[in-house]
Computed example of a mutant assay.
Amino acid sequence: MVRIGYTMMTEQRGPTDLVADVVGAERAGFDFSVISDHYFPWLAEQGHAPNAWVVLGAAARATDALPLMTYVTCPTFRYHPVVVAQQAATVQLLSGGRFRLGLGSGENLNEHVMGRGWPAAAVRQEMLAEAVEIIRALFAGGYVTHHGQHFQVDRAKLWDLPEPPPPIGVAVSGPASCALAGRFANLVIAVQPERSLLTGFAEHGGAGKPAVGQIPICFDRDRDAAVTRAHQQFRWLGGGWKVNAELPGPAAFAAASRFVRPEDVARIVPCGDRTEDFLGAVRPFVQAGFDELALIQIGGGSQPAYLDWAERELLPALREL
């Protein structure tokens, strides 16, 4: 049975509400929760971008047993790898061992704020691989010194090191990232229900390890309202990650998606309250072999009604798959 997760979307909710929502998600019966780590929302209509790591610390203490995970953190620009390792170790301790560290190569949207430019995808993958090596070395204990192509580390050590350290997940979108994840990761992360991604991960050392996916949905008893809200906040989705990773800010996402119509979004995102539509969106991930799937409910203010509906209708139906 696929485990179903709740997504804390920092782009559409403030920090206090995010913590209240994840408490509600645990009460509703979700199997785990993930959090996005952004400096900007994709679109101005989303309206938020609190610090994900601060929210995680609060969520770790506010929940009792719900597993937590970054989906995903970029450990190469806004954060140095040694800082990510320290943050992850701290959340693992605060949560009593319920945290997993999801990593990715990042988006220009969030990382350009450091003023270091935005290199080609191949360079970003090199940086991610080197960052993961540093994080794994710090999780192993002791002092770490590293002189690499992209990062320097001078006698770093985690003084509060959990046992076990957080499992590491790596986001994949093609052969290069699958190879990287297979070498270094305890689990694989993907947003497309493509079996080839899981196969590539398995072929490079990931066989038997969990695969975690994610999809956006938009619940509302009024389907037209759901379609309108999905279009307002997620019309950027159709650009695909190869394009979206390059755009520098909300204005660029608005310009790139200006010709996307509500009906275009509704073809990608299940909207309304028909359980069958949501099952249809989840089924490809099940068939591709994913073990876990985090759902994104689009619309910050809709979370309480969504959680109530999920507890009574959606989650029981999904567990029948």
Rank of each mutant, 00 (worst) to 15 (best):
3 R>T: 11
3 R>W: 05
11 E>R: 00
13 R>D: 01
14 G>S: 03
19 V>K: 03
21 D>L: 00
24 G>W: 07
24 G>C: 04
26 E>Q: 11
36 S>C: 02
38 H>I: 03
63 T>I: 02
70 T>W: 09
74 C>D: 13
75 P>I: 12
81 P>E: 10
85 A>P: 02
86 Q>N: 10
92 Q>A: 15
99 F>T: 09
102 G>I: 09
102 G>F: 06
103 L>Y: 06
120 A>L: 11
120 A>D: 14
126 E>Q: 15
127 M>A: 04
135 I>G: 03
148 G>V: 02
152 Q>S: 12
154 D>G: 01
160 D>C: 06
164 P>R: 14
166 P>A: 14
169 G>S: 10
173 S>V: 14
173 S>F: 09
175 P>L: 00
179 A>Q: 12
179 A>Y: 03
180 L>K: 06
182 G>F: 06
183 R>G: 07
184 F>W: 13
207 A>I: 10
207 A>D: 15
212 V>I: 14
216 P>V: 07
216 P>M: 09
222 D>Q: 13
223 R>Y: 08
224 D>M: 01
235 R>Y: 15
240 G>I: 08
241 W>R: 06
243 V>E: 12
258 R>F: 02
264 D>C: 09
265 V>A: 07
267 R>P: 08
271 C>A: 12
273 D>T: 08
278 F>G: 01
289 G>C: 08
293 L>D: 04
301 G>I: 00
304 P>L: 08
305 A>S: 03
305 A>T: 01
308 D>V: 00
320 E>N: 09
